[in-house]
Nucleic acid binder design. Structure first.
Lengths: 202, 202
DNA sequence: CGTGAGTTTGACCAGATGGTCAAATCAAGA
DNA sequence: TCTTGATTTGACCATCTGGTCAAACTCACG
């Protein structure tokens, strides 16, 4: 492996292919359920070749998670203290719901990790995530104190948004088993919109 | 193994110990992440001894899931068409929240299974679960038509209840990383109560 | 071209894991 | 107590899986 040079064309291509394949495999089988061979095959590489780019299975998983954490938290980052309270929150919820629809693999990757006690990202939770949430809940509390939105426990408000939106990605099978052919997001969007309008109305 | 006789004292004790141990292990590591040895040790048995009671790892998992499905759906079963609509629904939500608090392993067992596409219980979802949900959403729609509660998409209403309540068990690590020392359920109970009162108010 | 770095692979290894089996031990009723 | 079926186990096996390695191959560039 090159020491610290700029990545070659081949390196870029293969690293990307590996991470893409790993996202597929890890998100649908969990860390333990995924095999290096499976990821290699899906990436179109041999196992030793894959291990030339990432030293261990763990390293692939870590690279994937840390690379995706930013994407995952982006919607909350965008919550703007200067916007209209109700519209800011509803827009955040809409963005989260879109992520469940467009990036379900990413959602399940994190879900798998969290359900099993987050053995590999616990640190990020109590540092990065905690800090971001505290920053944004402060904004929410400000809006509550100004009477712009209803008084609610800010942390539980955030939890409810995560739970409601990610549910559609993480428990997709169950949702579809109930809904049949109906598109989940068709009904989900107006539902959560209504729910939070009623909840947040001062 | 005895053919079809009534289970002996020892059989009862060991089968129970195995299922209890399996619940611990499967719920915190998923099916693939759990090892038979681990379950055996936790149950106080040797591996071959465990396999004397259940022929395969798969069989333990199946027995566990099907045995627990009933428990899991019980709260919804209790929803009574003849009760007061608002109070019936709020009571259902309270029962679900209590289950997240008191039976988090069971919740995570199902969560693990569902996140990975429910390879082992898909059938139960589209039969048992679907039937129960349809039966109960019919009641909800009845109440909506009578103007007793707000008009909402009944399936998504159910999903929201599942999502909100099970979130506290399934993503416990994350919830605690944010809340710190605060007891999650202390705040969750009034929060969801308020949320659904506002949502369901006609 | 030629060359050295970058890339790929077949063969291989060690440990983990699900499962088997024959033999030993135990329990309870006749 | 004796007998028979129930229970338990040590030893073992095949397979899977993460990871290694030396040798071969390919590419970019002087």
């Amino acid at each position: 492996m090159s020491k610290d040079r700029a990545p070659t064309r081949i390196q870029k291509k293969n690293r990307a292919a590996i991470l893409e394949a790993a996202l597929n495999v890890f998100s649908s089988h969990g860390f333990r359920g995924a095999t290096v061979d499976q990821i290699a095959t899906e990436a179109g590489l041999s196992k030793p070749n894959l291990l030339y780019y990432f030293p261990t299975k763990e390293a692939i998983h870590t690279a994937l998670l840390s690379g995706l954490l930013e994407t995952w938290l982006a919607p909350l980052h965008e919550l703007d203290a200067n916007g209209d309270p109700m519209e800011e929150i509803l827009a955040y919820i809409r963005r989260k719901l879109e992520m469940s629809r467009d990036l379900p693999r990413e959602s399940r990757l994190f879900a798998n990790e969290l359900v099993q006690g987050a053995p590999r990202i616990q640190d990020s939770l109590s540092s990065d995530l905690k800090i971001l949430v505290d920053e944004k809940t402060a904004i929410l509390v400000g809006w509550m104190d100004q009477g712009k939105i209803a008084q609610l426990h800010p942390y539980h408000l955030i939890f409810s948004i995560w739970a409601l939106t990610q549910h559609y990605a993480d428990f997709d099978v169950q949702v579809r088993a109930i809904l049949g052919d109906e598109d989940p997001f068709e009904g989900a969007e107006p539902f959560v919109d209504t729910l939070y309008r009623k909840l947040l109305m001062p």
